[in-house]
């Protein structure tokens, strides 16, 4: 039994890395634009379909294909923000962006149905179905590669945010958009590029999701509810929090799954409730700024 639990913990950590990749984009967008991108789940699935097309029709390796799908998803994100979200202003902005991103999700989902139909697909490659045996644990290559990629991408986003002028502009905009504009930051540009980056990472998340799960055009809805739970638990806007929450929740789910697969999903959301009761801002969420 102990070995089963250890294996479940290892599985949970590796799968958590994959979910972190998907959640990081969502929490980055929330942090800067103060909106929840409901389309994030469907965009992950779009990323999976792009990888599918490159893999099946052009025989491009899943990881090599990211060189095409990441820039493509970045452009899609920039267009979404520029065309729809940028125009929303005023007190109703947050509510309106929920509707607009939901509408975007429906349009993307409909287009995917039109192009690929309702049948489930799964990405395949030699490393998707093989594992390495280390210290008695079976570690699937795809999860190992995905976890390593997640760490690299999250470290890259951290470096972007904390080591570059653009990153400082992003963090300043996150804290006080008005003040940021008044000291020369083009906050519209910051918002557009951040949305682009937040969507670009769904290409990687989508490839990993598609390689480890079967998917069809409406797989995005289950995904978005999980991603929302993760970024709330991690602390809205916190990238490190998204990683910690992904690993925590997926590990918990994986361990509970040993005894009761039915309860595994319930425990996933129950953990969210319990943590928020104790710590309402999540693992790494900021308390509201103190009044001056």
């Amino acid at each position: 039994m102990a070995r089963q639990v250890y294996q479940a913990v290892v599985d949970g950590i590796l799968v958590g890395g994959v979910y972190a990749l998907m959640a990081v984009g969502l929490t980055l967008i929330f942090g800067v634009l103060d909106i929840i991108n409901i389309a994030q789940g469907v965009l992950v699935i779009l990323g999976a379909y792009l990888s599918y097309v490159l893999s099946v029709r052009l025989h491009i390796d899943l990881f090599v294909g990211l060189a095409i799908t990441v820039p493509a998803m970045f452009v899609i994100g920039v267009v979404l923000q520029w065309a729809f979200i940028r125009r929303l202003r005023g007190r109703e902005r947050t509510a309106m962006t929920l509707l607009v991103t939901y509408a975007a999700a429906l349009i993307i989902e409909g287009s995917l149905y039109e192009a690929f139909g309702p049948d489930y697909k799964q990405l395949s490659a030699p490393y998707v179905t093989s594992s390495v045996h280390v210290l008695g644990f079976y570690l699937p290559y795809i999860y190992l590669y995905g976890f390593a990629l997640a760490v690299v991408i999250i470290a890259g986003i951290y470096a972007l945010l904390y080591r570059t002028r653009f990153g400082r502009s992003v963090r300043a905009t996150t804290q006080d958009e008005t003040a940021a504009r008044l000291i020369g930051i083009d906050t519209s540009r910051v918002a557009t590029l951040t949305f682009g980056i937040g969507v670009a990472v769904t290409a990687v998340g989508g490839m990993m999701f598609g390689a480890t799960n079967s998917f069809n055009p409406n797989s995005g809805y289950d995904l978005i509810s999980r991603l929302l739970a993760i970024i709330i638990l991690g602390g809205l806007g916190s990238i490190g929090g998204a990683l910690a929450a992904s690993v925590f929740m997926l590990t918990l789910e994986s361990v509970v799954d040993i005894w009761s697969p039915q309860w595994a999903i319930a425990v996933f959301y129950a953990a969210l409730v319990v943590v928020l009761v104790v710590r309402p801002t999540g693992f790494f969420g900021r308390a509201p700024a103190r009044a001056q």
Binding site: R165, R168, S169, R171, A172, Q175, D176, T178, A179, A180, L182, I183, G184, I185, R286, A289, Q292
Partner: peptide
């Protein structure tokens, strides 16, 4: 009412500007 960026360091506040 001052509008600094509280979770950036003092130097980062300067470099933003």
């Amino acid at each position: 009412l001052t509008r600094i960026f509280p979770t950036l360091t003092v130097m980062e506040n300067m470099l933003v500007a």
